[in-house]
């Protein structure tokens, strides 16, 4: 049996909604970046810096970082609980899964700090 103590909101329904809401934020963010890239062929650093250092864009970027962390955590949790379970991994599945989950959380923690640092210091 796999339980949900490690799920983001401890509720499948809330996780489902959070994953969809963050997906929308991320998709919009990607569209903005791609649009900016296409509108500025042969971009120099000043243009790039100018784009990312406006306050609204800083807030949007940090929202995207946090959305990525929440979205990826829910996603990786789902994948982990689907595959790392006793049926495939035997009696120690829970141990393996917790190690996997802690690994994912560490990576996402680094992404969060790193991402916030990149955008906030601009």
């Amino acid at each position: 049996m796999v339980n949900n103590v490690m799920s983001l909101s401890r509720s499948g329904l809330k996780d489902f909604v959070i994953q969809r809401a963050t997906a929308v934020v991320l998709a919009l963010y990607v569209f903005c970046i791609v649009g900016f890239y296409l509108a500025n062929p042969g971009m120099d650093r000043a243009t790039l810096l100018g784009y990312f250092s406006s306050l609204p864009m800083k807030v949007f970027s940090i929202m995207a970082v946090l959305a990525t962390v929440a979205h990826a955590w829910i996603g990786m949790w789902t994948v982990g609980t689907d595959y790392i379970r006793e049926h495939y991994f035997g009696a120690h599945a829970t141990t393996f899964r917790v190690v996997y989950q802690v690994g994912c959380l560490l990576v996402l923690f680094v992404y969060a700090l790193w991402g916030i640092d990149i955008f906030w210091r601009l």
């Binding site: 990826a72 990786m76 990149i118 601009l122």
Partner: peptide
């Protein structure tokens, strides 16, 4: 794959900015 790829994108953006 994106869970891993995000690291590469953050790195590129970090140094470029």
């Amino acid at each position: 794959a994106l869970f891993v790829g995000v690291a590469a994108l953050l790195y590129l953006l970090d140094i470029a900015l």
